[in-house]
């Protein structure tokens, strides 16, 4: 029985649309996080002195501290952005597709 549903969903143009949109969104966010993280690792490996720059003239705190914190916060925010869109827009489209296929 479920095989038929799978067939019907697969043929539904909205499904390939959902697949494409959600896939692209996940890919963009993944690339963002990976680029930021490996970019950071590259700086750590090749130019660590860049991260040692003081935050402002005469300060001890280096720019490395807020940059590191920003990466952690960005990683968390990116999960929030994905969950928000996936749990509303993508899920409601998903629900319609499944409901129509189950009729």
């Amino acid at each position: 029985m479920s095989e038929h549903i799978y067939e019907r969903i697969k043929k539904d143009p909205r499904f390939s649309d959902l697949q494409k949109r959600r896939g692209r969104f996940a890919l963009i966010l993944s690339i963002l996080v990976l680029t930021v993280y490996y970019g950071f690792i590259m700086v750590v490996a090749f130019a660590p002195e860049k991260l040692a720059t003081p935050l402002a003239e005469g300060m001890t705190t280096s720019i490395g501290i807020p940059i590191g914190a920003a990466i952690i916060i960005l990683a968390w925010l990116s999960t929030g952005i994905y969950v928000r869109r996936a749990n509303s827009e993508f899920d409601s489209l998903n629900k319609q597709i499944v409901e129509d296929a189950s009729k």
Binding site: V33, Y37, F40, G68, I71, I72, S78
Partner: peptide, 23 residues
């Protein structure tokens, strides 16, 4: 600071798990 670099590495796997695998 090296300790901070480690901790960032331990965290950034999570967004990737979400985007690629969770659902």
């Amino acid at each position: 600071y090296d300790g901070f670099v480690y901790s960032i590495g331990f965290l950034v796997g999570w967004p990737i798990i979400l985007f690629m695998m969770a659902e």
